[in-house]
Structures are given as C-alpha cells and as structure tokens.
Design a binder for these strands. Structure first.
Lengths: 189, 189
DNA sequence: GTCTATAGCTTGATAGAC
DNA sequence: GTCTATCAAGCTATAGAC
C-alpha cells in the first residue's frame, strides 16, 4: 500500500533526478504521482518549497543508505569502492542514463538563489561525508585522510553522473571508479 | 565596446552558472543584459534554445581556455594541478560561491530531457577532456592513464564546485586538489 | 537593429464542493 | 482527505512601430 504522500515524494524524486527543481512543475508532479493538485497542497501546505525540502531529505537519506549497503556487501574496502562505481554505472545504463543522484541537480540550481533549500542540500551532503569518513576510518585510514577520501568519493560519483549522463556512456563512471580505487589503495597501505 | 549580443551572452552565462537553464527566464536575461526582449530575438531567432546553445558553446570554450592558461602558468604538472584547484576555490570564495562551472548545472538539467542541448554539452566536455588528456600525455603519462586523469580532473573540479558551493566553504575544493595531485604524482613516477 | 506591447500558455497557489 | 475550478503572475514568442 503506497500512500498518496509517498507517491508524490517518489514522483518528485524522479523528476528532480532527471530535470531538477525549476523544470519540475507542480502540475507535472501531480500528473506523475496520479494525485490532484489539491492533495499536493493538503500534504505539503508550504507548497513547492516544502515538497522539495521533504523530497530532498527523504531521497538523500535513502541514497546514503543505498550507498552504505553496497559498500557493506563487500568486506574488502578497495573492492567495495569498485563495486559501488560499477553499480552506479550499471544503474545509469539500465535506466537510459536517467537514474542518478537525487540531490545534485537541485543543489546546483538553488545554491546561490534559495538559502533554505541550499541548507537542506548542505545537511544531506554532510551526512554522506560523515558516513563515508567513518567507513574509511574503519578501513584503517587516519582521520584527515579519511575525510579527504570521503570528499573524493562523493565528487567522483557526482562527476561520474554528470559526465556519463551527458555522454550517455558508462566509460567516465568506470574511469572514476579506477581513480577512486587508486586513491584508497594508496591510503590503506 | 561590448556589443548587445555579447552582453546577452555574458548575462546568460552568469545566470546559467548560478541557477541553471529553467530558472533563467528570457525576461530576466533581458534585464540583466540591459537589452530588450526584441533584441534578444533579433540576435537569436531560434529563441531560448538557440541562445542557450550559443551561450554554452562560447562559455564552454572560454572556460576550457581559462583552465588551459592556468595549467600553462606552472611548468611542473603536479604543481599546476594544485594551482588550478586553489584558483577555482579562490574564485568561488571571492564571488560568494557563485562563479563556478558555466555548463554543469544546465548539463544535468537537460541530459535526459533536451537532446539538442545534451549534445552541445557533450561536445564541450569532450573538448575539455581531449585538451586535458593531451596535457597529461605531454607530462609523460601514457595514453589510457592520461585519459583517466583527464576524466578525474573534470569530475573533481565539478564535484568541488558542487560541494563547495553548497557548503559555502573552499575546503571541499581544496581536498579535491590534494586528491588530484596524489593521482597525478602516482602516474608520473 | 532597437524597443514596446501583447498574445497565448503555464506556473504556483487558493477556494470550496464533496 | 480528495478533487475541480480558477486566479494572478510568470513564461516564451511574436507583431509592428521607430
């Protein structure tokens, strides 16, 4: 049983991934979620801003958990990195290069023009970076280096989404997986 | 002497950097460039799509040349990388985290929904990657590794723009500079 | 080439029946 | 909670005077 509110958030997540915040109109969200505009304002009285904030927070948490689960699936840290980037590339390819990061496009759109949403995105990225830093520390990397690796992981993944989506080719994501593996290998030995 | 057409393209470049394609209305572009809407359609009969394509091509070429010039300013390749990332962070900070990549936000917005503009962005990134690959080859790195380094350079720079803009902090860009330096050091020795 | 006015459509948001 | 009708404001695009 998916509730109306869940359908709205899921449809908004998909539209934010594919075309970002400004291009995703409430009418389009209403149609994609098979929920009338009135229901949309019933569940999100704050309108588009509230819907966007809640969608970003939910999809940001879910995506962080997904990445964590993939990293957990492989005990060796270096191989886990390889698996994560391969999975990201495969998900992209299988979805026609649509299924990517649910935050990045919106984050770039709002960073200089919507302070509330910028803060929401900032908190999401902070959460991802903390989770990744802890994992690299658990793998034997010292504090400052682990934080740098976490930042590089997110940047390579986001850069991979950008380059692979635009080129409609998994090659950039694969190359970034190799670079990220090299960075982690250098840090753990 | 700046022509009307140049002012339009420059204003559009700035707006694309800060808020992307969909949020940048022709009225806003007209006001920012102090050019009436009619002039806009005189210089770009194809409307917003043509203006966007030409703006992306021009700003993409200019940004590639800027990065190339910064890399040329330092003979040692590893130090050149450091200089480039430091400069990117400093430009961000000095502009209130607004002056970033003129392509990335639009590229993510249109990758799945506007095939014409997607191809324009693809050609721009291809040009950057070729330019960077040649530079890494000139620095003594073999073909396949040089192409991977070029991809990592673009991804780290774009990821740095994303994370530093959202956090309003140069620290992510600085961390990515360190990672990129480590990757190039490992490749040249 | 420059500029104003406006058409036609879509947007975010609201009111009110059910 | 669900849904429809509608508003004011925004958008892209065009027409036509200068």
């Amino acid at each position: 049983m998916t509730t109306t509110k869940e359908r709205i958030v899921e449809a908004t997540t998909a539209l934010f991934m594919q075309q970002g915040y400004s291009a995703s109109g409430l009418k389009q969200i209403s149609e994609a979620s098979t929920a009338p505009v009135g229901s949309l304002y019933h569940h999100f009285p704050g309108g588009k801003a509230e819907l966007a904030a809640e969608t970003l927070r939910r999809s940001g948490r879910a995506y962080g958990e997904l990445v964590g689960a993939i990293l957990d699936s492989e005990p060796d840290l270096v191989r886990a990195i390889d698996v994560a980037f391969t999975a990201a590339g495969e998900t992209l390819r299988a979805s026609g290069y649509a299924d990517a990061c649910p935050i990045a496009t919106v984050a770039l759109e709002v960073a200089s023009s919507d302070e509330d949403l910028r803060v929401v995105c900032d908190e999401i990225f902070r959460g991802w970076l903390e989770m990744l830093t802890r994992r690299f520390e658990a793998g034997g990397v010292g504090r400052p280096a682990a934080a740098d690796l976490a930042t590089s992981f997110v940047a390579c993944l986001e850069g991979g989404f950008l380059l692979s989506r635009v080129a409609q080719d998994t090659a950039p994501m694969a190359a970034l997986g190799r670079s990220m593996v090299a960075l982690v290998e250098a840090a753990v030995r």
